[in-house]
Amino acid sequence: MNTPLLEVRDLRKQFKDFVAVDGVSFTVPAGGSLAVVGESGSGKTTCARIVTGLEKATSGTVLLDGAATLDRRRRASFVQMVFQDPYLSLDRRQTVSDCLGEVLAHHDREMDRRSRAARIDELLDLVGLDRKLGESLPRHLSGGQRQRVAIARALAPNPKLLVLDEAVAALDVSIQAQILNLLVDARAATGVAYLFITHDLSVVRHVCEDVVVMCRGKVVESGLVAEVLEAPAAAYTQRLVASVPRPGWVPSRAVSRG
């Protein structure tokens, strides 16, 4: 069997006396798309931050392409991240081109000015941004456009794995649809794998093949999206699936006491 792109084994993260992630394991195959689903406090974002190196695990292993440790730059060209809030995830002083150019220069020192400019145009095309917007500052862009820039920046080093931390949650419905289409296209074009951190089950159905459901730091259920969301086995997953507003849905208060 091939080495998975990402293998997380028995991950644990403790903040002082609070256990955020408690014995979590999952894998992402090359080119795959795994959703980590859960509500606030489930530990899903902490998992994502450990995978990208923003946090250190208390114990457990994260294997990227079978290797436990990579230096900063190698790791960065392997796994990248897109954040939730498009208004805060770009440097407000940097134009789109400068933002992308800085990342490109960092990962490939040999790259000359002209091929860098060509690659910037290529990235802008990939995420569906007008090349003219390259000279714009973030404040002149809409939320959807900023999120496209953030995705372009994350794809710039040609990563094998893209971690999307609630990357469409802050967007308007019509923009969310555009970005979801973009993510489907970008995956088809580059073969990048997704680790999709989200609370939104309809988004999971749309872009992911596998799903891990987390609750209070633990994995309560995992498997194929089609199976887990259509016929959830765990009580928590059943509740989660049942509480999504949909045609004919009647909210009921007898769900829990919390």
Binding site: S142, S174, I175, A177, Q178, V203, R205, H206, V207, V225
Partner: peptide, 20 residues
Amino acid sequence: GSRPGTVPPGERLRTVPGTP
């Protein structure tokens, strides 16, 4: 039409161009 779930998974969502 733009909510995921209105089309089968993997198919393109029907989007409106531009921003609100």
